[in-house]
Design a protein around this nucleic acid. Structure first.
Length: 585
DNA sequence: TGACCACCTG
DNA sequence: CAGGTGGTCA
């Protein structure tokens, strides 16, 4: 118990204070600066978003028009059925939408069967002229909605949409963006969204006029063509949805081109603000030896302790220790600097849909060295993050989204080509579990109130609360077991002084813990956790080595000590959208 | 009595 | 990781 007073008092401060200040200072998400303050991450997105918009706004309209022309041309010819490899396939029109067209060809011939002109049909068609307008109008709206869906998925926060499109709650996304252009839970970068809004509305007008023009053209067609128009209508709808599918498919299949870039550029920003010795650096709280925490992923060559590899006594600090300041931003406990980073909703959506591999495997697109020098801080966790901390720290953001999301969940699954993962379930989902595990790095004994604050998208009931508390109980159990095991191992390895025991990032103990709480290592384990772990280890060692473990309740004092070492949890973990990025992690 | 905890078990 | 149990505390 001797060195404890120092450690105990200093550590929590090192961890918690910066967390609070940093976060509260940075968490005014509505500030436009924030979006701009992060040029690189968003430098990518907006452009890709606009590209998508362009695709829909122009190219696709062109495609529509081209198809109309094709069909009109076809009207002038005998409506003879076409073979699968018909001439249309050679027309330039098809180049605009190769994939959808290919699919459509299989459908078209079938649909043309009822098209055989018959007098009765013609009559009906003539009467149907006004109806046709309605249908076209309907079609127009469908197009718009589809476009909006895509834009929402592709452009962060492109929530702008013409009135009267989707009813709220129809489709998973809809519930998320009831704020119009404003950044909803889904999109915190108000900056770009406002741009998107205007762009979109302009594009929308353009689309509307295109459609009106189209309908005029169609109305002037020979009556025999009316039936064809019906086909055309259906075809357009289908084409659009196919286009949507293909675009999304492309995005889903080819995310590395977009997503990691965002992450990468993002990473460069974080270290700048807070390069210097993390809070505890001044920390004065600990034996300088204990501070020597080598970077992780270091070659294990330095491990000189024979079979004691779970944690390493500081035998050769000279070779292994790295100045704390060198560890930069990663090293400190509360990774507050990340909280203001704006991430891309689609990225996280995509992540949530089985693309995690791209992240956990990282390297192909690893950040340029200059962004985080020397094995930079593994900020991947934050790359994955989607900090929709759009509300102030205390404002319990996103409460409104809960019920809507649940509704959206029921209505949603088939509204998009992929299921919605961000949706909050009645109970706890794997994302919540993952998040809870990450929270464990900061708090071993979170109160139920704290849990409620950090899971704003969970509707807490007695059952849910106790389940989550049970999670932490299980986490602790595993943690203490590992600690005791390591302590005993150290003892049997001949370690004599607990002060020389420290949990290092390249130690086996760390690896075990990291695997348990942070599988995939997509979260940078905060140093404060290492410090607490070291202290825990020391306490266990002390108890074991002094024979206190003969007392049936010998662990209780240790528990008491550790329970006082909780740190503040970074605000970023408060985001209800946070679990979703790690959903399948 | 309820909340929370550690421990044991499957 | 969840269920069950018994202990502690307010």
């Amino acid at each position: 118990m001797e060195p404890n007073p120092i450690l105990l008092s200093a550590q929590p401060q090192a961890c918690s204070h910066p967390a609070e200040r940093g976060l509260e200072g940075n968490s005014s998400p509505s500030s436009p600066e924030q979006g701009r303050g992060l040029p690189s991450p968003w430098g990518q997105m907006p452009s890709s978003g606009r590209a998508d918009r362009g695709w829909f706004g122009d190219e696709h309209v062109q495609a529509k028009r081209a198809r109309v022309e094709t069909i009109v041309r076809g009207i002038c010819l005998p409506p003879s059925p076409r073979g699968p490899g018909d001439a249309r396939a050679k027309g330039s029109v098809l180049d605009l939408e190769k994939v959808p067209e290919r699919k459509r060809k299989q459908i078209l011939p079938v649909q043309q069967v009822p098209l055989q002109p018959s007098p009765a049909r013609n009559q009906a068609s003539r009467k149907g002229a006004p109806r046709m307008r309605d249908q076209l109008h309907q079609l127009k709206q469908q197009l718009r909605c589809l476009q909006d869906h895509i834009l929402q998925a592709a452009v962060p926060g492109a929530a702008a949409r013409g009135p009267g499109c989707l009813e709220p709650g129809k489709g998973p996304l809809s519930g998320k963006q009831r704020n119009g252009c404003g950044p909803g839970p889904w999109a915190a970068d108000s900056d770009h969204h406002q741009g998107s809004c205007t762009d979109i509305s302009a594009a929308e007008k353009h689309r509307v006029s295109e459609v009106q023009h189209l309908s005029k053209e169609l109305r002037s067609l020979p009556s025999g063509a009316q039936a064809l128009l019906e086909i055309l209508k259906k075809e357009l709808t289908r084409a659009v949805s196919q286009a949507v599918d293909s675009v999304l498919q492309k995005v889903l299949v080819d995310p590395p081109g977009h997503l990691p870039q965002q992450g990468r550029s993002f990473q460069g920003l974080v270290p700048e603000g807070r390069g210097e010795p993390s809070p505890s650096g001044g920390g004065a709280c600990r034996d300088p030896h204990v501070l020597a925490l080598p970077r992780r992923v270091q070659p294990r060559a330095g491990v000189s302790l024979g079979n004691f590899s779970l944690a390493k006594p500081l035998e050769s600090p000279g070779t292994r220790s790295i100045p704390r300041s060198f560890q930069g931003p990663t090293a400190s406990c509360p990774s507050t600097a990340h909280s203001h980073i704006q991430e891309n909703p689609i990225a996280s959506q995509l992540l949530g849909h089985g693309l995690n591999g791209h992240w956990s495997s990282g390297p192909p697109q690893d950040p340029p060295p200059q962004l985080y020098p020397s094995l930079g801080p593994a900020l991947r966790p934050w790359v994955l993050s989607q900090p929709f901390t759009t509300a102030g720290p205390e404002s319990r953001p996103l409460l409104p989204s809960v019920k809507t999301e649940q509704g959206g969940l029921q209505a949603g699954p088939d509204a998009l080509p992929f299921p919605s993962v961000h949706i909050s379930f009645e109970g706890l989902n794997p994302g919540h579990l993952k998040k809870a595990k990450l929270m464990f790095f900061f708090a071993r004994y979170p109160s139920s109130n704290l849990l409620k604050a950090y899971f704003p998208d969970v509707q807490f009931s007695r059952c849910i609360t106790s389940q989550m508390i049970k999670w932490f109980s299980n986490f602790r159990e595993f943690y203490y077991i590992q600690m005791e095991k390591s302590a005993r191992q150290a003892l049997s390895d001949g370690v004599t002084s607990p002060r020389r025991l420290v949990v290092l990032r390249d130690s086996e103990l760390f690896r075990t813990l990291n695997t348990h709480y942070n599988k995939g290592s997509d979260f940078e384990v905060p140093d404060c956790f290492l410090e607490v772990a070291s202290l825990t280890l020391q306490e266990f060692f002390r108890a074991v080595s002094t024979g206190k473990d003969s007392d049936p309740s010998w662990k209780k004092p240790i528990y008491k000590i550790i329970s006082k070492l909780d740190s503040d949890i970074p605000e970023i973990l408060k985001s209800s959208s946070y679990p979703q990025e790690l959903f399948q992690g």
